[in-house]
Write a protein that binds this DNA or RNA. Structure first.
Lengths: 231, 231
DNA sequence: TCAAAAGTGTTTTATATACACCCATGT
DNA sequence: ACATGGGTGTATATAAAACACTTTTGA
């Protein structure tokens, strides 16, 4: 390992793929920012920015999310680091990509209050993106689809209290296939990870469904004892 | 996204966790380099180094592997990017970690020919490592254990032609549990991914086992049609 | 002839899948 | 009364797990 001072350094940024589930519209969305400066001025891009010397990568991602989209508390996970030579036309920039999961309905307003133009786009109807952000988004989607099946991260896309119907819809959207309702309920409830809040939906034009909550603590305990979440 | 020139930049390195399987000793090993300069002079560390402006991250990893360990052709996959503020005592350094899988027996000599001291260590008997390399190694092991079950990467740890016994031993070592021989063979052969080379082991003091080869092409075709590898 | 690993099927158990009707609520 | 999603159980098919003896080879 040579000493560091002699070499020019690539710049380092982070980028965030923020997924939000629209429970009503039954649609998976991504938050994008419209760039107000070149390069790619006016084009849509992932929220992100340069890593500062006094913050970790994750802190940087959280700060950028807060600054650019107003999003505060989210599930955040590192995705992949992209280092192609020409991914930024200005200079050599390596970016550490993260993906975040939020409940869209709670963050619908936050995005629009910011100075920069931020908006939710359906993953099935995306505009052209700046830099290599399409590639990053694709990788994030792949990760989400893979991980949602064997880690209980899907709950992060729902409100704290949700119905089994909403949970099933979530999986159907992310996995892009229909699931059998009875089998799904049997499997999920059989894991014993949801607590019945005792409350039900309100103001719905049909039989009100029970509201459940994901028991994070119970999951961690079971996991230690070898339990594997799987949908 | 601000312009880049104004800000100080973290340095960027890559580090590689090179796994090698010792089929004879039935042991999973990692290649380490003894540092010849401070910091951590004399301590063992993962092979790695600074990312140059004219190479991608993967190219950098391959170059460092070649230069420091003599290893040429390997399975290489990005693991995770580590960005803690104090992981290098000198200055802010972010490192992109990769892990590599090689057949140890083919690379046993290569390591020792290099100027720097490189050596294989059993993962169950490791020295203290420089920087946060213990943490990186741990993450690599976790990834390997997880991924080996649902992607056919284990073959990268074996010679091109191998016996079913060796393959099973591999899984038993990595997964740290015994597998039933008949069930294992049934499952693996049932996938129809191994081609019988028609040859058998030589110079073994017991019944010579058939030598098989992994059919990469067939795997890719099956994968497209929805097939999932799983052990 | 002994040691050491190779090779081989069947039965049992657990898990996944397929499938249809009644219920509660608001309009 | 009707439209909409909520809620429930059983039978069948598929996959995983348990299990023991014979074969081949070199020492």
């Amino acid at each position: 390992m040579p000493t560091t001072y002699e070499y020019p350094r690539p710049s380092l940024t982070i980028d965030c793929v923020v997924f939000g589930l629209d429970v009503e519209e039954k649609d998976l969305k991504v938050m994008l920012i419209q760039r107000d400066i070149p390069p790619f001025q006016g084009q849509w891009a992932l929220p992100g920015g340069f890593v500062r010397m006094d913050e970790t990568l994750e802190e940087c991602a959280l700060r950028e999310l807060r600054e650019e989209t107003g999003i505060q508390k989210v599930y955040l996970e590192q995705l992949y680091t992209f280092g192609n030579l020409k991914r930024d036309p200005r200079e050599r920039v390596v970016t550490v990509a993260y993906y975040a999961l939020v409940n869209l309905n709670e963050h619908r307003i936050a995005a629009s209050t910011d100075a920069r133009k931020a908006a939710w786009f359906s993953v099935s109807d995306l505009p052209r993106l700046a830099f290599d952000h399409e590639q990053i988004l694709e990788a994030a989607l792949r990760r989400l689809k893979g991980k949602v099946r064997y880690e209980p991260i899907g709950f992060e896309l729902l409100p704290k209290r949700f119905t089994l119907g909403q949970l099933q819809t979530l999986y159907e959207i992310v996995l892009e296939r229909k699931l059998d309702r009875r089998n799904f309920r049997k499997k999920i409830l059989g894991m014993d990870l949801l607590t019945d809040t005792g409350e039900v939906q309100e103001d719905v034009a049909h039989r009100a469904a029970k509201l459940y909550q994901f028991d994070e603590r119970k999951y961690r305990q079971l996991k230690k004892r070898g339990f594997n979440f799987e949908v």
